[in-house]
Amino acid sequence: MAFKEGGAPVSAATAKALPVDIPNKARSTAMDAIEDILYGSISGVVGKYIEYPFDTVKVRLQSQPDHLPLRYTGPLDCFRQSIKADGVMGLYRGITAPLLGAAAETSSLFFFERLGREVVYASGYYSHDRVLPLPALWFTGAFSGSLTSFVLTPIELVKCKIQVPMMTSADGMAPKAPSIMSVIRGVYKHEGFRGFWHGQMGTFLREAGGCSAWFGSKETTTKLFYLLNERNATSQLEKDALATEALPLWQQAVAGASAGMSYNFLFFPADTVKSRMQTSPIGRSAQNRTFMQEGRALWKQSGLRGMYRGCGITVLRSAPSSAFIFMVYDGLKRHLPL
């Protein structure tokens, strides 16, 4: 069994027989790119609404300062304190920027992943009439994440400073929930344009490794399900039908969920260090630590446990969010081609 781009299966014989038509291929690539941007944006927004309250708790757990006693004993305590202080809607504080960010992030991921496939084809190891093997798809995921990290860092910096307002006040007064524009103005005033990429190394490590696992796990799990379904088929006619049909929804959901959990767990320490860097007070740029300095400080304070603070809730929320992202994206690509 072989797979088209996007996870749709084709038989080996069909894959070998695919025609190579340069004009049609160019048009197809352009339309696929438009679909990646449009459908990736829609699926990203859906996923963000599902995961955002959990992401707020995760960032608050990650960003607790190393020179003070821990404010939260765990995710449930953070939920309880946050709802008590700001109500349920407080968990959605600052969601406007992340919604735009989710649209930009997810569309970038799918767009750059397709670009990564073109890079692999251009290397000469594979031609366009061949289906890429799983190791190549893990590489295209890393390629996609590496480029997406540069788009994502400024968005996440603004998001983190809004989610953790107590970390943005440098005067010791009771913090006021900052707006998107106030954060942007503050960062630019004190740190310039370059300040929006504070924490870039953490985002790069998380996205390069995490997106390799995100795309790779999804494609691997999808392939395993197709092989399992083919093995359980009782006739050749049923096997042929399976080769052209999408997976059942529950299998699509499992494949997407496995992708989200792999992405978040494997490179979570990089995200923790990044969140601590991005929630440092605005106006104290002299105290901004590098990625390695922040990592050493956290390790000295809490060790490995501190690196994975908030990981459980992050992996938990990533399962339904990632499942919906892939289901929405694949469904739109399949049923509403441009």
Rank of each mutant, 00 (worst) to 15 (best):
V57N: 05
A15I: 04
I162M: 15
G172F: 14
Q301M: 01
A15R: 06
A30K: 10
L109F: 15
P320R: 06
R27G: 07
A213P: 00
I282K: 07
M1R: 07
C78W: 10
L68F: 10
D21P: 07
F79R: 07
Q301G: 00
A170S: 15
V164Y: 09
R80K: 12
L237K: 12
S146Y: 09
V119R: 10
D129A: 02
K274V: 00
A257R: 00
T220L: 13
S280P: 00
A323Q: 12
S212F: 12
V158I: 15
Q81G: 09
L336R: 06
E105D: 06
P281V: 14
L249C: 04
I50G: 06
S322E: 01
G256A: 07
A253Q: 13
A319V: 05
R276W: 01
A241T: 09
V187L: 02
K274Q: 07
M166W: 10
M1W: 15
R276L: 01
V10S: 01
P133H: 10
N229F: 13
A259P: 08
M31N: 00
L338C: 04
S302G: 01
R296G: 07
G186P: 09
Y188F: 14
A30G: 03
G145A: 12
C78E: 11
V151M: 15
R284H: 13
L38T: 14
E156P: 01
E207T: 02
A208P: 00
Q287I: 08
R71H: 03
Q81N: 11
V46E: 05
G306R: 03
L249M: 14
L61Q: 04
I282M: 08
L99F: 08
T14N: 06
V45W: 02
I313Y: 10
D240Q: 13
C311D: 01
